[in-house]
Simulated scan of single mutants.
Amino acid sequence: MTSPAPALVLWDMDGTLVDTEPFWMAAETPLVERFGGTWSHEQALGMVGLALEDSARLLQNAGVPWGVDEIIAYLTDEVLRQLAETGVPFRPGARELLADLRRSGAKTALVTMSMRRMALAIADLIDFPAFDIVVAGDDVARPKPHPDPYLQASAALGIDITRAVAIEDSPNGLRSALASGAVTLGVPLMVPLDGLGAHALWPTLDGRTAADLAALHTAHAPALTTATNPQETR
């Protein structure tokens, strides 16, 4: 089958494919409070799309006396525990769009700054082979908003990044995708994405199809430019 434009669709995970941000927040608050600190909703919102290492340092500043790696491991375990108890909350239309892309012949990649074990656990809960490749936070030297994670995924599949659409929900994720050279779609959830340069902002993926992404790519690919930007998001 001939692949449509785009040849590759690159998916962020937390907040884009699955609505796990409340699970991260639910893990952060009791951790800070365990050591006598306080953690507001505004502070939690400030962690959306932030580097996992930077998130860990903010929790250290709030009084958590653990190392960065220990904090990341704890948060990952807690989010996975919540997912096991409640199931995976896919964002509206995300699973259906993934299935339509697979039928269309487009390649798909999961590009997340969560740990690989979490990314694989979520991918395994999808009832069809959803992704050709997973690039996770512990797979890359330079995380989002560097372009490296998206470039690594496209290179691994042998597809030029200009033939790709990336779907993101956070400012850092958008910066990473735009810097890579992909056509970039923002689907906001917890924080606004206006004015960040996304080629399009859709309020939801519900009802969207592979044909919609093909039209988006066709409309914007010729005008792509490449920039750079540093760090890592979940």
Rank of each mutant, 00 (worst) to 15 (best):
D138M: 09
A109P: 07
V111T: 12
P143F: 08
M1E: 14
R81W: 10
F128A: 07
M13K: 00
W11D: 01
E21F: 06
G186Y: 01
D100G: 04
T184H: 03
S55A: 15
V111R: 05
R116P: 02
I161H: 09
A223M: 10
P129A: 10
A106L: 08
L31H: 06
E78A: 14
Q82M: 13
E53M: 12
G67W: 13
L59Y: 09
F35L: 06
M113S: 15
L50V: 14
E96L: 06
G195L: 09
A153H: 07
R57T: 12
A166L: 04
L224I: 12
D124L: 00
Q231G: 14
I167C: 08
R81E: 12
G105I: 08
D160L: 13
T108P: 02
R95G: 03
A5V: 13
S176P: 09
L224N: 01
I167S: 01
D54M: 13
G137K: 00
G195N: 11
D212I: 03
V9I: 11
S114W: 03
M1H: 14
L50M: 15
I126D: 09
A221I: 05
A200Q: 14
A7S: 13
S170Q: 02
T225F: 07
H146D: 14
A62C: 08
P143T: 10
V79R: 09
R163T: 03
I122Y: 00
D194A: 15
M118L: 13
I122M: 05
R103G: 15
W39A: 03
D127P: 03
H41A: 15
I133Q: 04
T209E: 04
M47D: 10
I122V: 15
V134S: 10
T184R: 08
I159P: 01
I122D: 00
V183K: 01
A56S: 06
A121H: 12
P6M: 05
P171F: 00
F128Y: 03
R117K: 10
N229D: 13
I161L: 08
D19F: 08
G15S: 09
R142T: 11
P22V: 10
D160Q: 13
S176L: 10
F35P: 03
W11S: 05
R116H: 11
E232F: 11
W24Y: 15
P145D: 11
V18D: 05
